[in-house]
Amino acid sequence: MSRTNIMSRTPLRLSMGGGGTDVESYYAARGSGAWLSGTINKFVQVTVLVNNLGGYIVKHGKKVEIVGRSGEIVHPLYREALGFMRMDEWTHRVYSSPGLEINAFSDAPTHSGLGVSGAITVGLLQILHWLRDSSIPPPQKIAEEAYHVEHDLAKSLNTGWQDQMIAAHGGIVSFEVKKGEKPTYQRLELDRHTLAELESNLILFGTKLEREQTANEALGEVHKKVKSASGKSNLDYLDEILEIGKRQKLALLNGEVREFGRLLHKHWEVKTRYAGPPDPIIAQAYEEAIDIGALGGKVIGASSKGAFMVFYCPYTEKGNLRRTMSKLGMVEIPWAFEFYGSQIVYND
């Protein structure tokens, strides 16, 4: 039997506005949700090797699982993706001694807030479609399947559509989802000056903190806080997040990049009220960044405690921001927008 080795490359993302309104508990209650995301040049690479060893070898993080059938895999994303694609049936039908070895490599930690799990699922489904069908569905279809695998089959019920949709489509994209429907999308065709200013003045830092929870667990904790001290529910706060996200989209389309930065600060104020106080190091970093001249910023991910922070900082103050964050132990992460979604990059 010939060995087949296939690799997909899927971009990670920055959540740019409206995050949290992509979750079913919000848009089912309010009728719709909308958010803005952008993919960056940090990636997840998934490889699948067809061999003659039989069964499955699944490597994720520092763990290796060796099992006979897909249903025996412990990791829910791999187990449910393989089951959804009926790979047990396919390997036995096509090969006499079937076996699949699956590896995933990421430029960021699993719980980084950059959409790693969604990127893995999208990239894996692309490969499995190519193996089984010799073709790949359109990005929207892949994203819908990945959401079904994670949300419905793997029971990641507190998470939303954002990660799978942006990983499949790539670029800077605005999404909307209505109750009982699938999301729709609009690519933001920004002029080159707006894009250059946005990319130059958004500065990404690694906090060296680790969010031990999955996104599903982090969002679950937030959802338990039904009422705040002021009597407002999380839905009320997410209404504000939704409106801020819509204003951020308009700001970018109108070339008002500094306004986008100021709206990041509005987002920070609302999110810290409903998601809880940030880690003291993150709170200090944000306060000092604003004092220096940053217009706004956010923790990337599902909570106010995360591995990455991004600030919008005008060019004249970027040096001061870098020095201050370095003193706090944070590391700047070079990045750029990536305008292609998940792709097969190797097939031998």
Results as ranks from 00 to 15, higher is better:
340 Y>D: 11
122 V>W: 06
201 N>D: 09
54 G>W: 06
133 D>A: 11
255 G>A: 05
159 T>S: 09
148 H>P: 04
343 Q>E: 14
282 I>M: 03
30 R>F: 06
338 E>Q: 11
98 P>R: 03
304 S>A: 13
332 E>S: 08
347 N>C: 14
202 L>I: 11
320 N>Q: 14
277 P>S: 09
73 I>H: 02
256 E>C: 04
254 N>L: 11
57 I>W: 03
300 I>M: 15
175 F>K: 00
237 Y>S: 09
334 P>A: 02
97 S>N: 14
167 A>D: 05
247 R>T: 01
68 G>D: 13
330 M>A: 02
38 G>F: 11
9 R>F: 02
145 E>Q: 15
172 I>V: 13
252 L>V: 02
22 D>Y: 09
239 D>L: 08
302 A>C: 06
194 T>W: 00
142 I>A: 09
97 S>F: 12
275 A>L: 10
186 Q>S: 09
72 E>S: 10
62 K>N: 11
1 M>K: 13
202 L>D: 02
122 V>Q: 11
258 R>Y: 05
194 T>P: 01
170 G>Y: 02
330 M>T: 05
192 R>G: 00
270 V>I: 12
275 A>T: 07
184 T>D: 01
188 L>R: 01
212 E>N: 08
171 G>E: 06
138 P>I: 12
142 I>D: 05
95 Y>F: 15
316 T>F: 15
101 E>N: 04
324 T>H: 09
12 L>V: 05
315 Y>R: 13
17 G>N: 03
16 M>E: 04
54 G>L: 10
139 P>A: 11
32 S>I: 11
259 E>Q: 08
39 T>C: 13
86 R>E: 15
201 N>S: 10
16 M>V: 07
282 I>A: 00
139 P>E: 08
148 H>C: 10
44 V>E: 10
109 P>C: 03
247 R>H: 06
207 T>K: 01
273 R>Q: 10
127 I>H: 12
301 G>P: 04
29 A>L: 12
189 E>W: 10
114 L>P: 00
31 G>M: 11
204 L>K: 05
314 P>N: 07
160 G>M: 05
83 G>L: 14
52 N>T: 14
297 G>T: 10
22 D>G: 01
3 R>M: 14
228 S>F: 12
67 V>F: 06
59 K>E: 12
129 H>F: 15
64 V>W: 03
161 W>M: 00
332 E>G: 04
150 E>K: 03
339 F>G: 00
342 S>G: 12
144 E>R: 09
31 G>A: 11
284 Q>N: 08
342 S>Q: 06
